[in-house]
Design a protein around this nucleic acid. Structure first.
Length: 512
DNA sequence: TTCCGACAGTGGGGTCGCAAT
DNA sequence: ATTGCGACCCCACTATCGGAA
């Protein structure tokens, strides 16, 4: 009999969810981790931080409906559950959906109600216990009696917390220190914060010179080269080597044979201007007909960072030195345009220029910052332009989790002057404070109109709301053939009536 | 004592591959 | 051929805790 069973994880998760204090969550998690046996440590770290050792198993929210009754006695071990999930993942070909369902039912029949609830949250991808990677890093450190900084460093290099956590719990700080940057195995990519404008980005980086780089609206790539072998990974560390042969050839064309580079792939038109993001994303996601697609939609790559060049790990070096190494290893045509300046005015001119060329914006970087992979550290700050429109709320959907009982997700419409009707352009739930959620729920119920159901309340088109968004994209889903990208609420406009709302024509202007 | 960095949660549009219909 | 689902590409914003100032 194992000392730690699935029921223990389920109980720990409940305790974590019930205790809002971060330090208490860490205590609960560390207490369990300190009891788990070495061969189950990876599973425990994974499950309690909302991950699966298999990463994905082809089961989502929809497959988790209509599950069997629980049993009364909890006996399931982590190893047993892990084996079942592996066999679910292994199903493929005709009949696989039925086989998956069968195995999933067997799993749920073999556990108690509390374990079922835990597995539902885990497999559904919504832990709702207020603890994921960030809290788990601290819990692993506490349970293994190692500094959290050592865990973070290992996670940067390994990119997968369950593996790092298991190493820490079984081998302590020595095991953590044995993690190295390994060519061919992806590193957790460094992420950026955002700022509303160039001046604010300069301010955030705290004076001194700032490196400004074009922000291209493509797909983030991490390219590894060892001799004749190249591997390419995405931001979530999934391998896409086969989909991006242009990138592979570009890297093989460099003289350095030992490389880890960070950059962006993007589809450019013959005139050099960027294709819409959808075109790049479609090209990168397509696994078949790659050779034909190369002809119609070629990909370009632009690197902006070097993590390793010719046997030297550069992660801990400041940005300026890493970029110098990048410039030595990679020709200028494959490097993201960059300007180092202390002058915000000069920065704004650079921003204007990148937008004129049709690109997304800028990323401002402190030349002193090391590559803090996997953390949205303050070293990188992105700046993008923002559009706004006054739109009409057509309906609202009931929220989930902490928004349960509140009307949350808004259906947004622009006015069609021809018909006098409103054309839906998308939805948003962003930008709403708790106070605004409470207010709009009450207000919406007062103007409810038309067929509503358990998810949605239709409204008389009376409420005008000011919406910020990044751009307009072609939509196969919405009636006007266009949708807003990254829409969020700025404020309600009680001073405006629906007749004052922006029109579909003004939105269409932005599509070009 | 106040401020602010980091984290988790709440969901958005679009596209692909695959299995089922 | 079409549809449904899972996965993954891009992502913004608010509330909260707890350490920093």
């Amino acid at each position: 009999m194992r000392t730690v069973l699935l029921i223990d994880l389920a109980r720990t998760s409940s305790a974590v969810a019930a205790d809002p204090a971060r330090l208490a969550k860490i205590r609960h998690l560390a207490e369990l981790l300190s009891r788990v046996e070495p061969d189950e440590a990876e599973i425990a770290v994974a499950y309690l931080s909302g991950e699966l050792p298999q990463r994905q198993i082809g089961v989502g929210w929809r497959s988790l409906q209509d599950l069997p009754e629980p049993r009364q006695i909890a006996t399931a071990s982590l190893t047993e559950v892990d084996a079942l999930l592996s066999s679910i993942k292994a199903q493929s070909g005709p009949g696989s959906q039925a086989a998956r369902k069968d195995l999933l039912e067997r799993l749920f029949r073999s556990v108690t109600a509390q374990e079922q609830a835990f597995l539902l949250r885990l497999l559904g991808g919504e832990m709702r216990q207020g603890a994921l990677n960030g809290v788990m890093i601290e819990a692993v450190a506490k349970a293994a009696a190692t500094p959290a900084a050592e865990v973070r460093r290992a996670l940067t290099l390994r990119g997968w917390l369950p593996a790092v956590g298991a190493a820490a719990l079984t081998g302590g700080v020595e095991a953590l220190r044995s993690f190295r940057l390994e060519v061919g195995r992806p590193v957790a990519p460094m992420l950026a914060q955002s700022a509303p404008n160039v001046a604010a980005a300069f301010e955030k980086l705290g004076g001194g010179p700032v490196a400004l780089e074009w922000k291209l609206d493509g797909v983030r790539v991490q390219a590894h080269r060892s001799g004749d072998e190249v591997k390419v990974f995405t931001r979530t560390l999934d391998e896409i080597t086969a989909q991006v042969p242009e990138l592979v050839e570009a890297v093989l064309g460099l003289s350095a044979e030992d490389l880890v580079l960070d950059g962006e792939v993007i589809a450019l038109r013959p005139d050099g201007r960027p294709e819409p993001f959808q075109v790049t994303a479609s090209r990168v996601a397509s696994k078949i007909e790659t050779e034909r697609l190369r002809g119609t939609t070629p990909l370009s790559v632009f690197f902006f960072d070097a993590l390793r060049v010719n046997g030297e790990d550069l992660l801990d070096l400041p940005d300026g030195e890493r970029h110098a190494a990048l410039e030595r290893a990679v020709p200028a045509g494959l490097i993201t345009p960059r300007l180092v300046t202390s002058d915000p005015e000069e920065g704004m001119a650079f921003f204007t220029e990148v937008l004129r060329q049709g690109h997304e914006g800028l990323v401002a970087k402190s030349p002193a910052t090391p590559y803090a992979a996997g953390r949205r550290g303050a070293g990188w700050v992105k700046v993008k332009p923002r559009h706004t429109l006054d739109l009409v709320v057509l309906a609202a959907e009931w929220g989930h989790g902490r928004r349960q009982g509140k009307l949350s997700n808004l259906h947004l419409g622009a006015r069609d002057p021809e018909s006098g009707e409103f054309v839906m352009l998308g939805k948003t739930f962003k930008g709403l404070t708790d106070e605004l959620l409470a207010w709009q729920t009450e207000r919406f119920l007062a103007i409810a109109d038309g067929p509503s159901d358990e998810w949605m309340v239709r409204l008389r088109p009376e409420m005008v709301v000011e919406i910020a968004f990044d751009g307009v994209q072609r939509s196969p889903r919405y009636p006007g053939g266009m949708a807003l990208r990254f829409a969020r609420v700025l404020r309600y406009r009680p001073d405006k009536s629906p007749e004052d709302a922006d029109t579909v024509d003004s939105v269409r202007q932005l599509l070009l």
